[in-house]
Design a protein around this nucleic acid. Structure first.
Lengths: 196, 196
DNA sequence: GACCTCATGTAATGCGTTACATGATTTC
DNA sequence: GAAATCATGTAACGCATTACATGAGGTC
């Protein structure tokens, strides 16, 4: 009967369940470290917000905005909260895994090892940077473990996943770099004098 | 100038670089453990194959097929190989991360802990199953480390990523289940007689 | 007789990105 | 004066899924 809500709709509701926001702010919140697992452009968020509005899951109040249009501050409704609660415990549909770096790895045997090594070094830097971010956020959270039933529990749990994910990725990149360096100099071992 | 090839195009080329295949077989190969990082329906593979054909990156020979149409056995061309080689070492574009389970986790503070625990237990079983698969494949590969320049190097490297990914995921699920059980019985600790 | 595997394709629809359009305020 | 931030929206296009259509051969 009801038009099915796409996953992004629930992502929006998850943000609104924490704080009333404009469409613009929702996009911004999704870019923050603990909520980086779902992103969308503001244009899509706006269109999805209209759908949620039509379904009665969100409402809004207006305020004077900076641009020509008025600013709309959205909030989740009772039905919205109920729909979100129900959705949360439904088993997630199996998602097709698509990972460009791993695909490149699958075809890596065809390419130049030195260039590959460079690519993985770049990837590694990215993961290390994120890991540092996550670890800082984790440290500030661990001091007092947030109780279930408070939004900070969600923050911590999602962050924990991001943290161990980045660790796994960084480890894998290091492993790759090591493997590639072995194929670059398969002769004997590291007894080269490293002059120049 | 040239119409840009979507990532799926390169996934197809990566498969064809290993063995000539029909569109149907390509879809099948992508479902196998070491190449599970990119999937597509056969209908999309067929349309993309036509594009690769128009770009001169693949060719095909026909053979009598089981159905009304003829079977087409595709193979990668010289240009195709070159395009693939170039693409492999280009840094991957940052991909938007979308993870339904983590999104649910972010909103988990609103839901019923028992139902959540059940959901994570299901997820954990899935990851453990895959991990076992990957570990079996890994064991059979480690005996003789494949040399760079052979397809098996790509298999091993991609598999390594899948392996540590599933490990990270399973660990995180266990951590979540533990966290949730703490919120279920916050009283004292595990000194319950576990009769019944 | 029903269903699965092999094999190719078309069509409808939905999700997502990118680019375009507008415009005030603040920072360099 | 140029650029970034805040704020909303439309339009075009591309990627992906799902369903539909056809049909042989083998298995339960």
């Amino acid at each position: 009967m009801s038009s099915t809500i796409p996953t992004l709709g629930f992502a929006i509701l998850s943000v609104l369940a924490r704080a009333d926001s404009t469409g613009y702010e929702i996009a911004g919140r999704m870019r923050n470290p603990v909520a980086r697992f779902w992103t969308a452009s503001h244009s899509q968020i706006h269109t999805d917000l209209r759908r949620l509005l039509a379904a009665g899951l969100v409402g809004y109040t207006t305020a004077p905005g900076p641009g020509p249009q008025e600013k709309k501050i959205y909030s989740i409704t009772g039905e919205g909260l109920e729909a979100l609660r129900e959705w949360v415990t439904e088993p997630p549909r199996p998602q097709p895994e698509r990972d460009e770096l791993v695909l490149k790895t699958y075809a890596a045997w065809l390419a130049d090892p030195a260039a590959l090594s460079e690519m993985f070094r770049t990837a590694l830097r990215g993961h290390e940077k994120r890991l540092a971010e996550y670890e800082a956020a984790w440290a500030s959270m661990e001091k007092e473990a947030p109780a279930f039933g408070t939004p900070r529990f969600g923050n911590m749990a999602a962050l924990r996943c991001g943290l161990t994910y980045e660790r796994h990725r960084a480890d894998w990149c290091r492993w790759m770099i090591d493997q590639l360096s072995r194929s670059l100099k398969p002769s004997c071992d590291a007894s080269y004098p490293s002059e120049e």
